[in-house]
Amino acid sequence: MQNLVEIRRNIKQRQLFNNIFALVGLFIILVAILILLALTLRMFIDGAPRLNWGFFSNFPSRRAENAGILSAWIGTTLVMLVTAVAAVPVGVASGIYLEEYAKKNWLADLIEINVTNLAGVPSIIYGLLALGLFVYDWSLGESVLTAGLTLALLILPVVIVTTREAIRAIPNSLREAAYAMGATKWQVVQDHLLPYSFGSILTGVIIGLSRAIGETAPVITIGALTFIAFLPDSPIKSEFPFISFEWLKAPFTVMPIQMFNWVSRPQADFQVNAAAAGAVLIFMTLGMNAVAIYLRYQLRKGIKW
């Protein structure tokens, strides 16, 4: 009996630290969430008077109450589209190659270190690189395409690193099971590694895109406009071949630039516009996350952990 008393005292002692950590953790999370919520809410309340149909369908204007984000939200959507289309296949393919195909030698180590470091390079450096490469050397212009490719470069390291980590987390016993059946390396990748790591890869892609959607510096560097009163060419046409890629070459602006532009004006009315644009930007990010959750849910139906 005495033994039991001792055991209980011992457990109590050890549980003390456990409980302290749990409490401190909870407190910190609550504070962080509250601050975030307060800031976001504040922005929504400030911007609420301008969140109407006109705000989305008007071009920017010198008069705050007429000014809208039409060119900005369309610009951001198109740039993000290009970014995703460029970064996801290249990043996922690189991650798979490095993890499953490349020989593990000093070259692989060097590439690994470089890719990880690239994730930490300031975004304006990517802007300068893109200005030289895409705008001057390749003459892609100060266009949607250039911006999309620039941001794709920016998030490529994140996509590569998350892909590698997601693939590495798959138990080796599953690889061996598939190889032992006579599968080729590509069949192992296609039938097992990609489906099982899809959710984690998608999370990495969304983290990357969420970073890209808020980037201002590199987009300004490559020559995004701050005031633009027309839209890129429509991608859908009424005549054959019904789709067009002229929009890729169009000048553009994006949401954060529009916001910055309004924030930097002295008039209070424009501050309201900036808050409203910020609220929309947050919704766009949440929208991307919603798409990711939906895709993950759809794919999980096929995978039965």
Partner: peptide, 11 residues
């Protein structure tokens, strides 16, 4: 081959 630990695919 059949392995030591059962390793079915998550399918």
């Amino acid at each position: 081959m059949v392995f030591q630990k059962p390793n079915p695919f998550p399918k």
